[in-house]
Amino acid sequence: MSTKVRTADTRARILTAACEVIADIGFEKIRMRMVAERAGVSTALLHYHFDTREKLFTEAMTHSFANTAVDVERDAESAPAAVILARIVRNLLPSDPQLHQDWKLWQELWVRALRDETTRVFAVDLYAQLHSWVSEAVRRGIATGEFTPTDVDGLSTLVLSLCDGYGIRLMLRDPTITLDMVLAAVWRHVSTALGLPDAVPTD
């Protein structure tokens, strides 16, 4: 294994550990030592890659987002556009244990962004990436004739807003809603705008 590959592997292991620790106890309570122990590396090596907690946090968020994007984009060129869009909606919600962890990271990000300008700018940029994620999938479906033309930016903003609102309630284990109810509610708006069947597509 080359040095470059080993370095990339070490960074990925550290970032995965950081995501887990931040989700477990919250950013304000973490210490670099805790992340190093979870990743199985020395504190010195951790500091070599990430010299501050803030840098570690932002890169952990980016790492989490990138991993989710990889899952969504698998077979994107051959799968129906509706399947890809439904996959994106599921990944915008705490719909499995990994995404539940990711949502804890997002909640930490929101709190920090209210108090720290650098984090606020970073959070706004991540939302712009999420918006592009949804809008590009919608535009792809319109271009192939699978979707009815619509206000792409407006629909993308609506999808993100609905997923945020419902996602918080799912994280709170609100007994009045379920994941299936949420998916159906979000997809109802999507299907109406894009001329699709009401049923949420499955992979």
Rank of each mutant, 00 (worst) to 15 (best):
V5C: 06
V5D: 15
T7M: 01
R11L: 11
R11I: 15
A12H: 05
R13V: 05
R13D: 06
A18W: 02
A18E: 04
I22D: 04
G26N: 09
V35I: 11
A36D: 11
R38Y: 06
G40F: 07
A44D: 06
T52I: 01
T58S: 03
T62Y: 08
H63D: 14
S64Y: 07
A66M: 10
E73C: 07
A82S: 14
I84V: 12
L85N: 04
V89P: 08
V89T: 09
S95T: 14
Q98T: 13
H100T: 07
Q101D: 08
K104L: 04
L109R: 05
L109H: 09
V111M: 12
A113S: 15
L114M: 11
D116G: 05
D116W: 03
E117M: 12
F122P: 04
L126W: 06
V134Q: 01
A143C: 04
T144R: 11
G145C: 07
F147P: 00
P149H: 11
T150V: 07
L158W: 08
L158E: 13
V159T: 07
L160D: 14
I168N: 02
I168H: 07
L170F: 05
I177S: 07
L179I: 09
D180P: 12
M181S: 13
V182R: 11
A184N: 15
V186Q: 15
W187S: 12
V190K: 13
L196M: 11
P197Y: 02
T202P: 00
